Computed example of a mutant assay.
Amino acid sequence: MARMKFICDSERCIECNGCVTACKNEHEVPWGVNRRRVVTINDGEIGAEKSISVACMHCSDAPCMAVCPVSCFYKTDEGVVLHNKDTCIGCGYCSYACPFGAPQFPSQGTFGMRGKMDKCTFCAGGPEENGSEEEFEKYGRNRLSEGKLPACAEMCSTKALLAGDGDVISDIFRNRVTHRQKNGKAAGGDVFGWGSAYGKPTQGAKS
């Protein structure tokens, strides 16, 4: 059985936010909720700036599942961590426990009330019937049941964001890293990375 995982290649991510837009559009995510976001470190430093696309990592030993007082989280046969909004009480414990900031809560509503938690579903829907209107309304489109990969990964223009069977995408990433090591650090990233998008640092510039 495949174990579904995400890997983001920081050498290829160009901070276009296409993955973020694809996710919000595909699932009609409510205002104030971002199931996926792009994080950039060393912002503005030429040669040192790196970006990575972050969402729920569907952990093998998910801390959100461990702290939820009503056990609204469950794991599918493919290793995707999902939740039941009918069970969720909006306590926010999952948001404190998650190291990736995946659990999101609506920004609109009465002060002090969190509402139902929302997060990345790996485009696998929820506990309702696959493809049903109720499932789409609560969790968005169930692409996995259609034999498709998450929309964020399919829309990544540089193929920085990989999604699918953990063993398969690990092999793809390992081959990329090996290629870069053989051809120099910049070679692998320049194919679809920062070098292609923004050019190489000019001589004498801060690196």
Rank of each mutant, 00 (worst) to 15 (best):
P150L: 02
P150S: 03
A151I: 15
A151H: 06
A151T: 12
A151P: 03
C152G: 03
A153P: 03
A153R: 01
M155N: 08
M155W: 04
M155K: 09
M155R: 06
C156M: 05
C156Q: 02
S157R: 13
S157N: 10
K159T: 10
K159E: 11
A163M: 03
A163K: 00
G164E: 02
G164F: 05
D165E: 14
G166F: 04
G166H: 10
G166Y: 09
V168H: 09
V168M: 10
V168C: 01
V168L: 11
V168N: 05
I169H: 08
I169Q: 05
I169Y: 05
S170L: 12
S170V: 08
S170D: 09
D171L: 14
I172E: 11
I172V: 15
F173M: 15
F173P: 01
N175L: 12
N175C: 08
R176A: 02
R176H: 14
V177T: 12
V177M: 07
T178A: 12
H179N: 11
H179P: 00
H179Q: 11
H179C: 04
H179E: 11
R180S: 14
R180M: 13
R180Y: 08
K182S: 09
G184H: 08
G184V: 06
K185C: 04
A186T: 13
A187V: 07
A187F: 12
G188R: 02
G188T: 03
G189L: 02
G189M: 02
G189H: 04
V191I: 15
V191R: 04
